[in-house]
């Protein structure tokens, strides 16, 4: 009996459990975080964006861009499969596709706005080739998913994501991400530093640093309405 319990305790998690855990780590039910995205370009120069990200119950995310001055006032909203960007210069919001580049960096909109892999992907466990890592193979369930296929690597011990590889339907590797600097944000542990590499333009990469994060916040549902953008 004890042996069975121990075996169960130390058994590798199921694919669905691991996927659920990834969503819990990277996208808790509600949060209010501040982040900085540093885009490194081909010529070696960088562009830095500061933003505030609000996530409400369900698949709702709103992003406020605070820096640089040329992007200040821009907002993005994601409700389910719908995405919009509010442009202060246009005084209006326009619809976005999930696969659009996020602020011209190496993340796409789905990477930042829609971390709900349980909804978008079917998961199976794979062989990571490294005893220190677990591998989750994700296959898109709908055309709205940001990628056709994702390989997610986790630490064997803490089950924290350490690396992701994002593939097109053709099988081509589009992007890769490395997750690092696991931090405690009020009892919630998650990687605070993500480096996303554009595998099609290898000199380019973007870093996303989470500087603060509050969980279990109450955000009125109307904050995730299209007509609230710009307020």
């Amino acid at each position: 009996m004890h042996a069975l319990l121990l075996a169960t305790f130390f058994a590798a998690p199921t694919a669905d459990a691991l996927l659920h855990k990834y969503d819990d780590i990277m996208s808790p039910a509600t949060f209010d975080l501040e982040a900085e995205m540093v885009a490194h370009r081909d010529d070696g120069s960088v562009r830095t964006y500061k933003m505030r990200v609000l996530k409400g119950d369900g698949d709702k995310v709103r992003v406020y861009f605070q820096e640089p001055a040329s992007a200040r006032g821009q907002e993005m909203l994601k409700v389910g499969d719908n995405s919009w960007i509010y442009m202060p210069s246009l005084k209006r919001a326009v619809r976005l596709a999930n696969r659009d580049s996020f602020m011209g960096g190496d993340f796409n909109n789905a990477d930042v706005l829609r971390v709900n892999y349980e909804a978008d992907y079917a998961a199976t466990l794979g062989d990571s080739g490294d005893p220190e890592k677990l591998l989750l193979e994700l296959k898109s369930k709908s055309a709205d998913a940001g990628y056709d296929r994702i390989r997610l690597f986790f630490g064997q011990k803490n089950e924290m994501p350490v690396r992701a590889e994002y593939y097109a339907a053709s099988g081509k590797l589009l992007r890769s991400a490395d997750f690092a600097e696991v931090k405690d944000f009020g009892g919630h542990q998650r990687p605070a530093h993500i480096v996303m590499r554009n595998e099609l333009a290898v000199k380019r990469f973007s870093e996303l640093n989470t500087t603060s994060m509050k969980l279990d916040i109450h955000v009125p549902a109307s904050k995730f309405a299209l007509d609230d953008l710009g307020r």
Binding site: M87, S89, A221, D227
Partner: peptide
Amino acid sequence: DPTLQRAGAWMARAESVFEDFTIT
């Protein structure tokens, strides 16, 4: 260049915003 014109109209507006619909 649609970004060039940002001028609007003078108004008094009341708007009721819900998740899936808005009445203005």
